[in-house]
């Protein structure tokens, strides 16, 4: 039903999407994870309470998160050009995706860490742990299942966002669907794109669930 050219386009679109999501997800995690930890431990009544720092970081995170993604993509074009050297293409699209992913992941990590039982922090303090040790030996390992779920959620969101970067020539599956499926009236291409995206999200979600289950030692059978 689909011509070999269309199949080639689908494969290329999938690779572009995976490329964008993987790179922006990875860089987003590198930025978002420490940011989320800082947000969690500097909150009121927390390990390293610092309300000024907490509010500033919180405000920056909220600003990014409250901007609709398609606006963000266009609004930061000068920044994208500065970082990627260009404002069009897959590499350029990674910049706004990362800018959107990092604060999202920061909030996800913050929530995961706040869910850790306060008693564990108290126990670690009673053992004479430094705040850094508490983060590394207690908070992160205990929050790991929730962080794994959160990162999965972030990856699924990124797949959705990546469909919009076609607006700046970002390529990927979303771009393929808009240009071939919609603008060239090829409903079978649109359908194929949707099916591939559904399968992709399912695979990502199942993998994430599997990892979260593996690292979660809380529900083991007695």
């Amino acid at each position: 039903m689909l011509s070999p050219q269309i199949i080639d386009l689908l494969i290329k679109g999938l690779i572009d999407t995976l490329h964008m999501v993987a790179v922006s997800g990875a860089i987003g995690t590198l930025i978002g994870l420490p940011l989320g930890v800082l947000l969690a431990v500097t909150g009121r009544g927390e390990l390293l309470q610092n309300l000024v720092f907490n509010r500033i970081i919180g405000a920056v995170v909220n600003m990014t998160r409250s901007t609709p993604f398609i606006i963000l993509v266009v609004a930061i074009i000068p920044f994208t050009r500065l970082v990627a050297g260009t404002s069009i293409g897959t590499s350029a699209a990674i910049v706004p995706l990362t800018v959107a992913a990092a604060p999202f992941i920061a909030r996800v990590v913050e929530n995961a860490i706040r869910e850790v039982d306060r008693g564990l922090i108290e126990a670690a303090q009673a053992m004479g742990a430094t705040p850094f040790q508490i983060v590394r030996k207690v908070l992160l390992p205990e929050a790991l299942p929730a962080i794994a779920m959160g990162l999965t959620l972030s990856a699924v969101s990124l797949i959705g966002y990546s469909a919009m970067v076609g607006a700046v020539g970002g390529g990927g599956l979303g771009d393929l669907g808009i240009r071939y499926g919609y603008q060239r009236f090829l409903p079978e291409v649109m359908l194929a794109v949707v099916v591939v995206l559904i399968v992709l999200v399912q695979v990502v979600q199942s993998t994430g669930d599997w990892i979260a289950r593996r690292v979660n030692k809380r529900n083991l059978k007695v």
Binding site: D117, G119, L120, E122, A123, P141, E142, K217
Partner: peptide, 10 residues
């Protein structure tokens, strides 16, 4: 502690 406060991940 009353609720043991063991690390579930260890």
């Amino acid at each position: 502690f009353q609720h043991f406060n063991l690390l579930s991940s260890r």
